[in-house]
Design a protein around this nucleic acid. Structure first.
Lengths: 294, 294
DNA sequence: CGGCATGCGTGAGTTTTTATCACACGTGGC
DNA sequence: GCCACGTGTGATAAAAACTCACGCATGCCG
């Protein structure tokens, strides 16, 4: 069997990036991994070759003579492979998946996650169409529709849930510092941010937590959930929103949820594939189902 | 981040091998994996590129135009990487691991497995010294000693068991066709192959299976276990041997074990590292411990 | 013309690899 | 002297790869 023993290629790839930067940490950033992963891979490559490629000094690494040689010889080779791959990819017919979703879900859930989808399926181009209309009245053709609940859905879409959800009230930490909220009643001191297309959310939530008659100090009406959330971040008042739309705002303390126990279950998010949708849509659906509920 | 999107490199490697053979199965043999693994990797590469690389016909595959192009461009590139790696490996100081073992174990267990070790550690050259002397009286320096039992071992070797073993009686199928053996007593009809350095094996075994006085039709004395086994394969009589030394002879029906229940436990095989042994010896020891008991 | 062998595809399950997290270490700058 | 920075590493979690066992379609051969 005429098989030349090749070095571990992914380790080589990491080595080349690290050699270019002369830094494991910066290479890790470029490769979207931790510095530890880079360190291990390069150690593995060195073990395979039986040669040190980097000299480890304090807080800095430099290439040994062998490392320089390997960089000089392997870098163009991988470059050539990249060229060849790109040549084939452009030849490939652009495979797109057209996604029909409401604007707030698109902005606050889908778009932040799309880079992950593209990373897994580099040949597929997501095309996003946002609309407030139900899928059956979509202004443009689509492959995948995403909505909460399946009212008004054409039968053919075969709706499938992929994300459980809840309604919570959130506000900026600075706002709470001025007028703390430790029980629902305190909301009467605050401005409630009302979304035009989801006016009933506050009433549903108030009923669910047992305060149907609560009247806020003020109301501010906005026309999309994501705008209401931005207003909340900016300290304008309390927003009522699906947990799925919170994104990193809670984790990074731009928003807090002062009444974490008072959540109201929501119908899950559904997606459906259009009848004519191709394999790309299937891959997108699979990816949706893989997304963690968090 | 100026990182060109590279295709999955290990999948590419499999693709090149498969393209060279125009067969997934033969590629799988060369790569020491199953055909399913090759199939999946190539599908993954095709999905990444968004282009079919092979045309699947019945029981045969052929390259598409895109596949040919990729093969033509990527093959030399990987070849160059292999060259570069090899250039570095020869520059590396030859790292050797000197192994001290008895001849029969070397021939029938170790040598068939050494290619696997070399595949895992291409920079390390195993050097085998066979001897009948105990490790303490070795004629040459060594890094690793391998024996059954640890009598006469210098303390410094820190013996460690790595392979359980048993004693069984085996013979060629053709011999058994002439004079079948279904109970131990039938051995009296046969020639027993006796190894000069392990004369007690037959007596131990006979005592263990409850026939201490059994007298064979004939004895044939040979000076090594592996020679006795070869004699058994050639139909000269029954050999008594450790299961670990059987190799593929039983699987491929060159030898059979007509009394499979009558096995006698043996002390396990041990290895020990010489005090001055380096990292290579450690890697070899790790590899030994990873070997399946089978 | 049925029975068998061959080569590839695939779902389920398992093993191996890879990456992350969290912490340690050593040093150079402030 | 102390902190900040970049790298090494053990434990563990996540992901990728592989195997197994089976299915399918077809050509070969008695």
């Amino acid at each position: 069997m005429p098989s030349p023993p090749l070095p571990p290629l992914n380790a080589l790839r990491m080595f080349l990036v690290a050699a270019r930067h002369l830094s494991f940490s910066r290479a890790a950033v470029e490769l979207n991994v931790t510095h530890g992963a880079v360190s291990r891979q390069i150690r593995g490559l060195e073990a395979f070759l039986g040669v040190a490629l980097f000299e480890r000094q304090v807080r800095r690494v430099s290439l040994t003579a062998e490392g320089q040689q390997l960089y000089a010889e392997a870098s163009p080779a991988l470059e050539q492979i990249g060229q060849a791959a790109r040549a084939l990819m452009v030849r490939a017919p652009t495979r797109a998946v057209r996604i029909n979703a409401r604007p707030s879900f698109a902005v606050r859930w889908l778009i932040p996650r799309l880079p992950d989808f593209v990373a897994h399926h580099p040949g597929i181009e997501p095309q996003l169409v946002t609309t407030l209309l139900p899928p059956g009245k979509a202004p443009e053709p689509f492959d995948i529709a995403i909505r909460r609940s399946v009212e008004d859905w054409p039968e053919a879409l075969k709706a499938q849930p992929f994300l459980d959800d809840e309604l919570v009230a959130v506000a900026a930490p600075s706002l709470l510092k001025q007028k703390p909220v430790v029980e629902p009643r305190s909301l009467a001191q605050h401005t409630l941010l009302v979304v035009k297309t989801r006016k009933q959310d506050w009433d549903d939530w108030k009923a669910h937590v047992g305060l149907p008659r609560l009247r806020p100090a003020r109301r501010l009406q906005l026309d999309h959930s994501h705008i209401a959330l931005q207003a909340a971040v900016d300290g304008l008042g309390f927003a009522i929103t699906a947990v799925s739309l919170l994104g990193t705002d809670v984790a990074q303390r731009r928003l807090v949820c002062p009444l974490p126990d008072l959540r109201m279950p929501l119908p899950p998010m559904y997606f459906g594939r259009a009848p004519g949708a191709g394999r790309e849509a299937q891959l997108f659906a699979d990816w949706l189902l893989r997304q963690p509920t968090a």
